[in-house]
Amino acid sequence: MTSPLQQKLKITGPTAITANRLSDGVVVWLTPSHGWSTDIADAAIATTSDVAMTLLSVANGDEIHAVGAYPARVVVVNGRAAPVNLRERIRVGGPTIAFEARA
């Protein structure tokens, strides 16, 4: 049986690595300098499986800052990452329910 660490990560397009910040759970994105940003536009973009695998490995090795890292499909607009599916749009933009609706 192949170890999970040896398994190939298949990607189908531009991909960024995202996680939640340890201290408060805020959504963060792995940057090209292997730091974390709350802005998806700062995310490192992988276009090959090998690069995505390397970035994911970096993210998983930094549990002190972020947890639950996983690869997320993105679209690239003017060289910057943007969310592509509803889940990531909500993670980036917050709940689709207006907070003032609770007042």
Binding site: N20, D24, G25, V26, V27, R87, I90, P95
Partner: peptide, 12 residues
């Protein structure tokens, strides 16, 4: 988890 703390989409 034994104390009811989950990690959700945006926060704990």
């Amino acid at each position: 988890l034994m104390n009811g703390v989950y990690l959700q989409l945006h926060a704990y």
